[in-house]
């Protein structure tokens, strides 16, 4: 018996749209290259500067009393700024996320207003918030915490709102049908369903905020960033190398611990 199998459809080449998108991407990259003064030649001829720098930095100065001890204490402050900056933003981020998520919001006006508040908080860099708070509470970790709280409300609120929007609509429908109010539906369907995602995003933000608090230290919020800035100004690159090693340990530790928590929740 002979049956003729229909021929597979012919492969088609990239569409004109794909070609123009590719061309556009290339053009944008060329412009970006020019706009940033990219110059591999300068890098090649100036390698000696980097070698001198690294020569000064190695071996790191690990003296406990003058370098490593203060470095670890300062790393503790840096972590504390990141931790409080994350956890104190939780209630505000949660309230705004519920209002800024299409599935839980009260109406178009509430939705737009809360989205705008989140966008504003997100678009002002935490360093700028820090400089503003310094004028009120002076240099130090407190200004850093306040800055991180505001910026983090914007970022985490948006991430949480998106997680809620992508949650399974089934449990929501089930509770709506049996007469639950909007707040009840949020409390008993949306939040318990997306809880693992919210915690995952929270830990990711903690990770980012600990690193941000390092940068805030550079502009005066204290912590290990301040020590790094100081050692650079004093040309003590061997001390700077120690501080950076401590930062590395801190960041890896936060990453490992949050990764473990996330895996247990999944």
């Amino acid at each position: 018996m002979t049956t003729t199998v229909p021929a597979p459809p012919r492969r088609r080449g990239p569409s004109p749209a794909a070609w123009s998108v590719t061309a556009l991407v290339v053009v944008v990259h060329v412009l970006a290259w020019r706009g940033t003064d990219m110059s591999p030649a300068a890098l090649a001829t100036g390698w000696r500067g980097m070698a001198d720098f690294l020569g000064d930095a190695l071996p790191p100065d690990l003296d406990w009393d003058t370098v490593l001890g203060p470095s670890l204490r300062a790393a503790g402050v840096t972590f504390a700024i990141g931790l409080l900056g994350t956890s104190l933003s939780v209630p505000f981020a949660l309230a705004l996320a519920v209002l800024a998520s299409r599935t839980t919001t009260y109406g178009p006006a509430t939705y737009q207003v809360s989205r705008s508040v989140l966008s504003f908080l997100r678009s002002v860099p935490d360093v700028v918030f820090a400089l503003i708070f310094v004028t009120a509470v002076g240099l130090g970790p407190f200004a850093g915490v306040l800055a991180l709280v505001l910026h983090n409300i914007g970022v985490m609120g948006k991430l949480w709102a998106e997680a809620m929007e992508e949650s399974d609509p089934g449990p929501r429908d089930a509770l709506r049908v049996l007469g639950a109010s909007r707040v009840q539906t949020v409390a008993h369907a949306v939040l318990p369903t997306v809880f693992p995602q919210l915690v995952g995003l929270l830990l990711y933000r903690l990770d980012v905020n600990v690193r941000s608090s390092l940068v805030l230290g550079l502009v005066g919020a204290g912590g290990i960033g301040f020590l790094i800035n100081q050692s650079i100004k004093l040309f003590r690159f061997d001390q700077m190398a120690t501080h950076i090693l401590v930062v590395l340990v801190l960041v890896v530790a936060v990453d490992q611990i949050s990764d473990r928590i996330r895996r247990r929740l999944a």
Binding site: G170, P171, A174, L178, G179, P192
Partner: peptide, 20 residues
């Protein structure tokens, strides 16, 4: 598709029936 909240206990899911 049942639509229970998997992370809550069976009893809590049943209690939710009374939310209205």
């Amino acid at each position: 598709r049942i639509h229970l909240v998997g992370r809550r206990t069976a009893l809590d899911n049943v209690c939710a029936g009374a939310l209205g």
